[in-house]
Computed example of a mutant assay.
Amino acid sequence: MAKQFDSLSDLLTRFIEAQHIFFVGTAGPEGRVNVSPKGMDSLRVLGPNRIAWRNLTGSGNETAGHLAQINRMTLMWCGFEAKPMILRTYGTARTLHPRDADFAELNALFPASPGARQIYDVAIDLVQTSCGFAVPFMDYVGERDVLKDWAEGKGAEGVAEYWETRNQQTIDGAPTFINDSKS
């Protein structure tokens, strides 16, 4: 049975902090819905109704483009290793790019990375738990270094060039505003 809450409790915060992967869901008013797995050391619970998620450079930039159109985001965690539970947070998010004043302060919460593309400052308006009884048991083996190594190999200039050539639009053609501010 699903349960809904206005905010994250200490127990739910500890559950989030124990997970090695989470999923983000966004969508524009039309086009495709994006659900993407996220890992690494990229999320901080900053309070009962606030999460900071640092988005690292990758092949797509759907979240930024979707939030520029409709500001709504769902984050989801699954208990793969122990207690069967699914946790979702629903809310809105402020998109911060490296050019924005508040980016550096929030970026300092995470390990240094030349691939840091955006930080989403998420305001939670609903928390929901459900049983997770159908979620399989899975063992955590470790982090992948591929994305970290790729960004470090590219360096800041190479990552910026990648943004210019690969991260300007969503797969549906919506702008992501990676290199300029929204009009």
Score class of each variant (00 low, 15 high):
58 G>D: 02
59 S>Q: 07
60 G>A: 15
62 E>V: 06
62 E>H: 06
63 T>D: 04
64 A>T: 04
64 A>Y: 03
65 G>Y: 03
66 H>I: 03
67 L>R: 11
68 A>R: 12
68 A>W: 07
70 I>P: 00
71 N>F: 09
71 N>C: 12
74 T>W: 00
76 M>K: 09
77 W>I: 12
77 W>N: 12
82 A>F: 07
83 K>W: 08
83 K>D: 14
85 M>E: 12
87 L>E: 01
87 L>C: 02
87 L>W: 01
87 L>P: 01
89 T>C: 14
90 Y>G: 05
91 G>F: 05
91 G>R: 07
92 T>L: 06
93 A>I: 00
93 A>H: 02
94 R>Q: 11
95 T>D: 00
95 T>R: 11
97 H>D: 02
98 P>Y: 11
98 P>G: 11
99 R>P: 00
99 R>W: 00
100 D>E: 08
101 A>H: 10
101 A>C: 04
101 A>N: 08
102 D>W: 01
103 F>Y: 14
103 F>N: 13
103 F>V: 14
103 F>A: 14
104 A>Q: 09
104 A>F: 04
104 A>R: 11
105 E>R: 15
106 L>E: 14
106 L>I: 13
106 L>M: 13
109 L>Q: 06
113 S>R: 02
113 S>I: 02
114 P>Y: 11
114 P>M: 10
115 G>I: 05
115 G>H: 05
116 A>K: 10
117 R>C: 09
118 Q>D: 12
118 Q>V: 14
118 Q>Y: 15
121 D>R: 06
122 V>P: 12
123 A>E: 12
124 I>P: 05
125 D>C: 08
125 D>K: 07
126 L>P: 05
127 V>M: 04
127 V>D: 03
128 Q>L: 14
128 Q>W: 06
129 T>N: 11
131 C>L: 03
133 F>R: 09
135 V>I: 15
137 F>Y: 10
139 D>E: 12
141 V>D: 00
141 V>Y: 03
141 V>F: 03
142 G>P: 08
142 G>Y: 09
143 E>N: 06
143 E>A: 10
145 D>F: 13
147 L>D: 01
149 D>P: 04
149 D>K: 15
149 D>R: 15
149 D>N: 15
149 D>H: 14
150 W>R: 12
150 W>C: 04
151 A>D: 07
151 A>I: 04
151 A>T: 13
152 E>L: 10
152 E>N: 10
153 G>M: 08
153 G>H: 08
154 K>V: 04
154 K>S: 07
155 G>R: 09
157 E>R: 07
157 E>H: 05
159 V>N: 08
159 V>M: 09
160 A>F: 02
160 A>G: 02
161 E>A: 15
161 E>F: 06
161 E>S: 13
162 Y>H: 15
162 Y>K: 07
162 Y>F: 15
